[in-house]
Amino acid sequence: MASDPRYRASVRIDLDLVCAHPDDLLTGIDGSSRMSASTMDAEDALLSLLDVAVAPGADHLVRIESASTAVVDSEWEGTSGGVPAGSSDTARVARAGARLAGIDWALNELFGGATGDATASELRQRTIIKGLVWNASVMVVDCLFDDVLHLADASGDHSAWRDTHVISQLPPQYATHYDRGFAQKFLAATIEVTSRLSASPVYPPTVAHELALKLVLDEAERNADRLSGDLPEGWREHLDTVLFQDLDVDSLFAEQDAASKRDAAAATPPLDFASWFIPYAHAPAPAPYASDDLKEPAGR
């Protein structure tokens, strides 16, 4: 006897949920039926209140075999004016990520497709990564403003770069060049890099822009280590692969002698300090402030 036909469908429903009293989520949990409040954050508490059921009278038509839920984005504004103690840092980062649409294309391969095909868990991970990059962009630029002021106040002090927030993370063998003028140009390059991340990014057009992008991703990776949420393995390496044409700038952080510095100058494209703000061939024109004139050809 032939079996009855069965039809299977995966249904994804996105809900905008508003909790009138978020402070009560953690304090009002029935500990006997749910996990203890000490291991639960506000997002988990809200998810624990959700249930999926079949409408009465339709039990013979459909059966729910599995159901999963995840918070993709959240913002907690309690009636008391504060954020509940259980509201996770991860949710805050995810909310920032909703504003960084410019690298969605770069994450498609990591998550196996565009956002329309993603599960709720993948959407959350995607927005967390974008939030990490967004927050790192803001932090690096903000700290560079402080670095410019510090180097301006310490004019003539060749060791002042050691007390900076961002400039001190650049290759130390070129530290003699890290003065106020350099910091201002590097700040302009960093702002340009981060603005392209939030719009429609292209490959960094100079060595300085590549270094700026590297420092932003370094900061994002450090912040990721502080979050409790899991992220896809290798997410940083993936961004390095798709956002850079190559990773030659990593060689600048290795200890160099006179010979290796000559090799850097002779590389294609050149990586010596004098070339840091010179646009790569066929690269989009960088901001005027962060761009140097082309050097005279050798031998002239």
Rank of each mutant, 00 (worst) to 15 (best):
V166D: 01
F273Y: 06
A118Y: 08
A264L: 13
I64E: 07
D23S: 06
R124G: 10
W276R: 00
V72N: 09
T241L: 14
L231E: 05
R196P: 02
L144Q: 02
V141M: 06
D292H: 08
V62M: 11
E43L: 11
D153C: 13
A283I: 03
E192V: 04
I13K: 14
R99S: 10
K130A: 15
R222Q: 14
V133A: 07
V141C: 11
I64C: 13
R6M: 10
A58E: 11
L217R: 07
I29S: 11
D225M: 09
A199V: 12
V249R: 12
P279A: 04
Y280R: 12
D218F: 06
A101W: 06
A101F: 08
D292G: 00
P270D: 01
L247C: 11
K261R: 14
G116N: 12
E65A: 15
E233C: 07
I128T: 11
Y280L: 06
P171M: 01
D104V: 08
V71E: 05
P270C: 01
A274Y: 00
A94L: 05
K214Q: 09
I103D: 05
W76A: 15
A290L: 05
K295T: 08
G156E: 03
Q245S: 11
A188G: 08
A274H: 03
H60N: 10
V141Q: 11
L17K: 03
I278W: 00
G57F: 00
S38E: 14
G156H: 00
A189W: 01
S88H: 06
L231M: 02
V138C: 07
S38Y: 14
L217I: 13
V207C: 05
D4T: 13
D218K: 09
Q184H: 13
R236C: 14
W276S: 03
L15R: 08
R236A: 13
I167A: 00
A91G: 15
P284G: 03
F277I: 02
Y7E: 06
A85D: 09
T206G: 03
A160I: 03
T39S: 11
P279Y: 03
M35R: 08
V216T: 06
H177Q: 06
V242S: 11
L47A: 12
D41W: 07
D293A: 14
L144G: 01
W105Y: 12
R34G: 12
H158E: 05
L197C: 08
D41M: 10
A287D: 10
P286N: 02
E296K: 14
D104G: 09
G181S: 12
A264F: 09
I103S: 04
S66G: 13
F244P: 10
G78D: 11
R222W: 09
G82M: 10
A188Q: 11
P232R: 04
P288C: 06
A37M: 09
G234W: 04
A259P: 02
D248Q: 15
V133Q: 04
A70D: 12
E65H: 15
L61F: 05
S68P: 06
S80T: 14
V72R: 10
T268I: 08
D73P: 00
D293H: 10
L49G: 09
H158S: 03
T194M: 03
A58R: 13
I191T: 15
Y178C: 00
V141T: 14
Y289D: 13
S195Y: 07
P286H: 03
H158G: 01
